[in-house]
Amino acid sequence: MVRSGRGAIYMALGPTFIEEARISAESVRRFMPDLRLVLFTDHPPLERGVFDEVIPLEEVHPKVHVNKLIAMLRSPFEQTILLDTDTFVCAPFGELFELLDHFDVAMSHDRRYIDWCPKNVGVPVAFREFNQGVIVYRQSASLIRTAEESLLWVNRLADMNGWVPDDQPPLRIALYESDLRIATLTSEYNCRFHTFGQVNGEVVILHGRIPGQPFTERNLSRIAACINKKTIPRVYVAGRVYALERPSIWGKSYFRSSHIVTMFRPTLGFWRATLRHGREFLRRRGLRDASGYLFCRMRGERQPSQ
């Protein structure tokens, strides 16, 4: 394959995630109008829409996220930014491609609520997992070897643990074993706003879904306005944003934390999602079957057979 230029790629399976990818791609187009956009999917839409090209995935891995590794290998660009469908761009990001003058790949760390990595694969705890929602990379023989090795580790970990991991633990191992030069991005370029983290300066790329709310341009624009209300150092956790302010009294400055905005209320989002899922469950199973299922769950018994 002859690769050229710069571009953004998405991997989306099914209509719901294709629609998310469209919203994300339109946010890219707003700030990076000349950047080419490519969608990898198992359900090619009738019209390309915002995408310059749609590439069908002939074989789909049963573990959805692993298909991102496959899309990485098939990128038509020399320099690529891979974006998850639930990303939303808030500002231009051309400086990310400048990193590729000195590095092979750029990613941000993923500090999950609980980190998971097998202890017998030779990767130190200090070499943390990278989040694959935003990956900037240039195609090279080393990059291709690392992506292919990640796919091999998917099968190895499945054999070791009896279940298939997502894309990030295999890539963590393959990156550690590789000779790639890795640039670590800060959270401003991969802001996991729906959980916890810290930023300093303008957030450029949001990454996540608002609990209990639809993934829409309007909702994500509101989140961007909230988290960028102030650009001094700030932390976010469970929908609330706190800033590290530095006021002064009589010429002496000091630090204090200040709650500046609430982006969303997670408890409200939880109940919205629960009610929505409950309605869907009731529609599928019917009142009698659904009531029996809930009764058994409350008593800790096995659910009735369907």
Rank of each mutant, 00 (worst) to 15 (best):
Phe127Asp: 04
Leu244Gln: 11
Arg6His: 06
Val89Asn: 01
Val60Arg: 05
Pro233Lys: 08
Val38Asn: 02
Pro33Met: 00
Leu82Met: 15
Arg256Ala: 08
Gln213Ala: 06
Gly94Trp: 02
Asp84Leu: 01
Asp167Val: 01
Val54Thr: 10
Tyr242Phe: 08
Asn161Tyr: 11
Ala290Leu: 11
Ala91Thr: 03
Leu287Gly: 08
Leu82Ser: 15
Ala8Tyr: 01
Arg285Cys: 08
Arg192Gln: 09
Cys296Arg: 14
Phe31Asp: 04
Gly197Pro: 00
Gly286Asp: 02
Leu82Arg: 12
His194Ile: 03
Arg276Lys: 08
Val123Pro: 00
Glu301Asn: 07
Asp167Ala: 09
Met107His: 02
Gly14Asn: 05
Leu73Phe: 03
Glu217His: 12
Gly49Met: 10
Leu282Ile: 15
Asp101Val: 08
Gly5Gln: 04
Thr41His: 07
Pro247Arg: 06
Asp104Leu: 03
Leu73Lys: 03
Ala238Cys: 07
Arg299Tyr: 06
Leu82Thr: 14
Leu151Pro: 07
Phe51Ala: 00
Gly162Glu: 12
Pro165Lys: 09
Leu99Phe: 09
Tyr293Pro: 01
Gly278Tyr: 12
Gln139Phe: 07
Ile70Tyr: 03
Gly197Val: 01
Ser248Gln: 06
Leu206Lys: 14
Met160Ala: 13
Asp166Leu: 03
Arg29Ser: 06
Phe31His: 08
Val50Trp: 07
Phe88Pro: 02
Ala126Ile: 09
Glu149Lys: 09
Ile210Tyr: 12
Val261Asn: 13
Thr195Cys: 08
